[in-house]
Simulated scan of single mutants.
Amino acid sequence: MPLPKIEDARSLSDKELQEQIVAVKRELFQLRFQKGTRQLEKSHQFKHNRHRLAQLMTVERERQLASIVSDAETE
């Protein structure tokens, strides 16, 4: 399975972005739990989920900075 593309994250609405961040964090928790109980079979999922979380948080930060800039321009 290839790594997800950042364009997918950029196409999400703000609410969907937040939901995805929570879902990926929950999934990472589940993976850590499986690793601790020695039930983890697909260790590559850590890399994919961390990559996805970084993309989602990057898009979130880009939007925060864009709103700060637009607010500064209107003043």
Rank of each mutant, 00 (worst) to 15 (best):
M1S: 10
P2A: 11
L3K: 06
L3V: 02
P4E: 07
P4F: 03
I6N: 02
I6Q: 02
D8I: 08
D8M: 08
A9F: 03
R10G: 01
R10V: 05
S11V: 09
S11Q: 14
L12Q: 04
L12M: 08
S13T: 14
S13W: 00
S13Q: 00
K15E: 12
K15M: 11
L17H: 03
L17C: 00
E19N: 12
Q20T: 06
I21R: 05
V22G: 05
V22W: 09
V22E: 12
A23N: 06
A23D: 04
V24H: 02
V24T: 07
V24Q: 01
K25T: 07
K25A: 04
K25L: 04
R26A: 13
R26T: 14
E27P: 02
F29D: 08
Q30T: 12
L31T: 01
R32Y: 09
R32P: 06
F33L: 14
Q34C: 13
Q34V: 02
K35R: 15
K35T: 10
K35C: 15
G36P: 06
G36I: 05
T37F: 14
R38G: 09
Q39F: 03
Q39A: 09
Q39R: 09
Q39I: 04
L40Y: 06
L40V: 08
L40H: 02
E41D: 07
E41M: 11
E41Y: 09
E41N: 12
K42F: 11
K42S: 08
S43K: 13
S43R: 13
H44Q: 13
Q45F: 15
Q45D: 06
Q45Y: 15
F46H: 03
F46R: 01
F46Y: 03
K47G: 06
H48G: 05
H48K: 13
N49G: 02
N49W: 00
N49L: 11
R50H: 15
H51R: 05
H51N: 03
R52L: 02
L53G: 00
L53W: 05
L53N: 01
A54S: 15
Q55I: 04
Q55R: 02
L56S: 01
L56Q: 04
M57K: 15
T58C: 12
T58A: 14
V59R: 00
R61E: 10
R61S: 08
E62K: 03
R63P: 02
R63K: 08
Q64C: 10
Q64F: 15
L65Q: 14
L65W: 12
A66C: 03
S67G: 07
I68P: 02
I68A: 11
V69P: 08
S70R: 13
S70D: 10
S70G: 01
D71N: 10
A72Y: 05
T74Q: 11
E75G: 12
E75Q: 12
